[in-house]
Structure formats: C-alpha cells, structure tokens
Design a binder for these strands. Structure first.
Lengths: 338, 338
DNA sequence: ATGATTTTTGACATCGTTGTCATATATTGC
DNA sequence: GCAATATATGACAACGATGTCAAAAATCAT
C-alpha cells in the first residue's frame, strides 16, 4: 500500500495538482463537474494529503498544542478530551505538552514546541494559564492562544471561563437555604487562581445572608484527596464543628466525606458536604457528592473553535474570543437540611 | 522574532546547510571544531529545525500515535503520561487519537491519521489492542506498532505487558493466606482481555489451595465504579456473604467498599476488599484499598523505546520487542485476617 | 459576432530540511 | 613523497503540498 500523492490524483482525474488542491481545500473557482470528478478519484485512490507537505507549503500546521501542568489529573483528562474531539471535527490535530514550571528547562521545551511544530494555536489550561512568563512566550512568537479559566484579562489572549465566583456563591447560598449557618470552607491552593474566586463567592453569599464566617473553619487545601482528609479531620474532629463543609473541589470534598465516615459522622444527617467540579470523585462515594458541574470539555472545545476561527488568527482577541460558559449546581446525596 | 532556518545558521557558521544538518542530527563525518562552531551558532540564533520540513524530507515524522479507547479514564491518563515523558526525552511528539470502535467511521479516522501524519509508530492501549481489525490497519500500512497488554501474540506487533494472571494469583493467595476461604470475585468486562487473565489467576490460586470457588460469588462487572456498587450489593447483602472480595480493578473495588459501608459492614474487620491497578480510586477511600500496582506508565514508556529503536523499525518484532514488566502487591488497609 | 469581463485552470517557484553523490581534503602505507 | 585510501564537505535534487500569477475558457454586454 504505497503512498498516494496529489499528482496521482491529478493524473487520474486529468487535471493539474493545483486543481486537486483546490478541491481538497474547498476553495472556489472549480467547475462543479470537475470538483465532483476529483472527489471521486480521491475516494477511489483513498488519497490523504500529507500533513507535513501541506504545513510546509502553507503556513498552517493544522496542529494545536494543549499546554497543561499535570496531565494525569481528571481535570486534565476532561479538558483534553473536549479539545481532542473538537479538533477532530475541525480536522486539526492536538499535541499535548506537559509544562512543569518547577523544572528549570521548561521554557526551552515550550519554545521548542512552538518553533519546531509551528503550532497554529495553543490552549493553556489552569493553573499555568496564569503564569505570565508562559503567556509571554506565546505572545512573543505570535502564536494565537486561548487561556482556560484564567484569573485576569490578557490583551492578546483569548479566554474561556466559567463563573467560579458565581458558582461558589450559588453553592453557598444553597447550603444556607438548607438551614446551615456554620459552614466550613476548604480553600483551594493559592497556585490556582480559581481558588480565590471560589472563596470570594463563598464569602459573598455568607455576607448576603448576614452570616459571619468562622475563620477557624476556613482551611487551605491543595486540591488533593489527601489534603481533604487532613483538613476534614481538622474541621470535624472537634466539638463546635460546622454543620456543612464546602470544599473547593471534589477530590477534597471526597476527603472530607471519608473523614466524616471515619469519625462516625452521618452524612448528610449530621453533616453536609459540597464539592466543586463534578469530577469522577464526586460520584465515587456514598452518598454521592453535591457539586458544581464545570463545563471542562466544553471550555476546551470552545477554545479550539476560537483558535481555528480565522478571524481570531488575524486581529488578536476580539470580544468573541472571550467566552463565559454556564455551570450548574448538581444536588446529590451529600447535602441535606441542617 | 522571525524564523531562523538552517541556511541562516549555515551562513553564519560559514559552512553549508548540509553540514549543519549533520551536526543537528548527530551524524558522523564532521570535524570536531566545525561541529562545535555550528553548535555555538545554533545556540546563539536559537535555531530549531522545522519539524515539517524535516519530516517531509526524511521519511521519519518524529511522531508517535497513541490509540486509545477512552481517553478520559485514569488508566489512559497514566499510560499517556508515561508515553509523553519518554517521547519528550527522545525528542518525539505524541499525538493522541481516540478510537471509538462503536462508531462506524472509526476506520477512516485511523487511516487518516496514519496516512496524513505518517506516524513513525503507534502505541495501542487496551482494550482495543485486541481488536484484530485495528491491528490490521497498522500492519497493512507498515506502521510499526506496540500493543499494551494484549491477550495474544501478533507476529508483526511489539507487545508490552504485565503478568495479569500471576498478579491475580498472588493477590488471591495473599487473601487465602489471611485465612479467607469464601472469596468473592468481581470480574472485569469481556471486552478487556485482562479480565479473563485475572480470573484465571484467581481460580488458579483457589485451586492450588484446594478451595472450591463459590460460583454464586463470581459476578461480572464492567470496570466502572457503579458496577462495583451494584455487584457489591449483590455479593454482600445476603447472609452467606464472602469474607473477602477481589475486584478486578480499583474502581469496582471502591464500589464494593462503599457498598460495605452503606450496609454497615466493617472493613477490614468483617470484610476484606482487594482491587487491581493501583489507581487513584484505590487511595480515595478509607481504608485505602489493597491492590496490584500495575506499571502503566512504564509500559507506555517501554513501548516508546521499542518504537524509537531503529532495529524494531526494520526487522519486525524481535524478542526485545516483547516485554513483560513487573507488578507489585500493594497491601493497604482494606484487607485483614478473616 | 466582438470585445470586455469574469471565472477556471495550470506552470512554476517555494516552503526548510535531508538523501545522494561527487568532490575536496586529510590520512595512511610504503 | 606519492599513490591509495579514508574522511569531510558541499551542490543539487528531492519530499508533497500550496501561493502566485499568467494564460485559457466561459460569460456577458452591446
């Protein structure tokens, strides 16, 4: 099964390679009958354009890079999957590039990808979407890039986000609505800008309800299951424990939930636990965890759309490259009346 | 920051592009002083070869494909990460291609990747590594490929595996050693060939110990947490329940564990639960789950090594392209004396 | 029917690298 | 010191597509 080139197709269809190229790329100025004939030959010969030749010749690589901190996390998997499927629909390919900011050579790796792969665009996932030094690398080399859930605005960058603050506010309001007054918070790590936004939402809802936050019941975790276990123990293993705990992601919420079980605290009867993300961990427990559905795959898909859109590639960052996607409160068994 | 080409380097170093190419690719026949001079210029100009031009010219793409069924699973993430890191070390890139065998157009997608990306090699993850039709696609187009944990041998394919049967046997023997006689098994799905091997190991260990298997306590799951919950309930919510349950992966083991908690069965005092994989779920519970550490990332890394190795690319599938990597029994809190 | 205009088509150069092969230079043996 | 050999180097043509631009064909207006 040797390789079929555009010349083979052209010869067989009795036209020039350039005409075949036009048909392949859906360009104008081809007579319908010729277009059809070429398409028939393409199908017959099962011709696929060589991506490298195409990229070398045009200036497009049909390659998008997904830059991500920890590709093993469930979050990353969802983002990647969303991007992957949309890329396929758009006939793009996705190259996943892990970025470890604590390694001294991370910049080299990123530069190498940019330069040698000639990426058509980059998707930058949290938390590294807030690393200015990283963003600058893309800006310097004029690579269109979209940030997923970044903290701020960046003039040359697209952004796709959800309303972390609003979602956390909703969740907190929901807990308050259930009658809870003493609510603990397990914060996310400072390295993730979403942590701060979620905390803000929490405090806003508490303030709106006129409830003072018990600062002793606000503890910082690092988004890991283990930290949920530990903070959960600190929060629950005492006499004046809160009646509800809001953890800023599901892994930590799961930790809190497991801790409650260890301590013999009935959920949701004696304690409500809420998480954030709607990740697999929120379903990997009993009762299942009430959480916020975060549109991870959708954000990634939207990022692909923005990057592929020719208008974004020219004039940097119009308003259509700043998206806010909707979230949803998912009520499950881990929360109940106070 | 415009693009630096090999000509720029050549001009500045006072040599021909071809010589620069030799230096870049570490070929012989370059005088040490010239080599050094070129390297200096490369560093100065921060030159990176254009991957497309290189691929077009040589016949190598420096691209490996990872073909995977469900890229969202934790298993996939580990495999991908292992492959990714090793690819980077070897200056290769990894393209992840989801393959959904239940979609009618899956073959087209795979063919398109092979043909248009000119992959230097493919890594095929379970369970699709057992899909003969898929393997044939690679064989037909002469793309070197390595299967991860396949069921059988395939003449032209490399393979990296672990001893699923042996590991399951060890785990079962361990449970028997703890004094358990009545052991339940939650099988994996028939679609994964590993399921059968693990079941075999279980039965072998039972037979060796002269214990009859209670066939009513052998239930098939589908590797999902939910199926673990359901099978757990079927297994535990009855008077003659087993004193230990071996689930063929961690997600299901977690389901069994959670079910035990719901039913008020103390683990490990009244019930031992064992899993398989050493995935995140095995640690996302209390007690943590005793399991088999499966060298997922290592298998993927080994697959990359095999594919990149020039000898494999020529003569197909020597013995060094058939690897068996070691596993380990990880004893944690979910198992105890009967 | 004729020239003016528009649409289609193809020749050819080009993208940035590497393979091939001929040539230039260094090394060896005698 | 001079062949004979080995080693270094570069000229040039690929690789397989697309961009540019000029030529050819079709359409239109009169």
């Amino acid at each position: 099964m040797s390789t079929v080139t555009i010349k083979d197709v052209a010869a067989r269809a009795g036209v020039s390679p350039k005409t075949v190229s036009r048909v392949i790329n859906g360009e104008d100025h081809v007579r319908p009958e010729i277009r059809e004939a070429v398409q028939r030959v393409v199908a017959e010969l099962n011709y696929r354009p060589n991506a490298f030749a195409r990229s070398l010749s045009s200036s497009r690589s049909y390659l998008l890079g997904l830059f991500i901190d920890d590709p093993v996390s469930g979050y990353a998997a969802d983002v990647q999957h969303g991007a992957l499927l949309r890329c396929r629909e758009r006939s793009y390919h996705l190259v996943v590039e892990p970025v470890e900011l604590n390694r001294p050579d991370w910049k080299d790796h990123v530069r190498a990808s940019i330069a040698s792969l000639r990426l058509d665009g980059a998707i930058i996932a949290p938390p590294i979407c807030d690393a200015a030094e990283l963003i600058d690398l893309f800006r310097e080399s004029d690579v269109p890039h979209v940030l997923i859930a970044p903290s701020g605005e960046s003039p040359d960058s697209g952004a796709v986000r959800m309303d972390d603050r609003g979602a956390a506010r909703e969740m907190t309001a929901y807990l308050i609505g259930l009658g809870h007054r003493h609510i603990g918070l397990v914060q996310g790590p400072l390295s993730h800008s979403a942590s701060a936004r979620r905390e803000e939402g929490f405090r806003a809802a508490m303030a709106e309800a006129g409830i003072a936050v018990d600062e002793d019941a606000v503890l910082r975790g690092d988004f890991s299951f283990r930290s949920g276990l530990e903070r959960g123990e600190a929060l629950l293993d005492r006499t004046d424990r809160p009646s509800a705990v809001f953890a800023c992601n599901d892994d930590m919420a799961l930790g809190v939930l497991i801790t409650a079980m260890k301590l013999g605290i009935a959920v949701p009867q004696s304690l409500s636990v809420a998480g954030f993300d709607d990740s697999a961990s929120s379903r990997a427990a009993w009762p299942q965890i009430t959480t916020i559905r975060q549109p991870k795959a959708e954000m990634a898909a939207a990022a692909v759309d923005i990057l592929v859109d020719p208008s974004f590639r020219k004039k940097s960052a119009g308003p259509q490259s700043r998206l806010m996607l909707p979230h949803a409160l998912v009520v499950r068994g881990s929360t109940g009346a106070a």
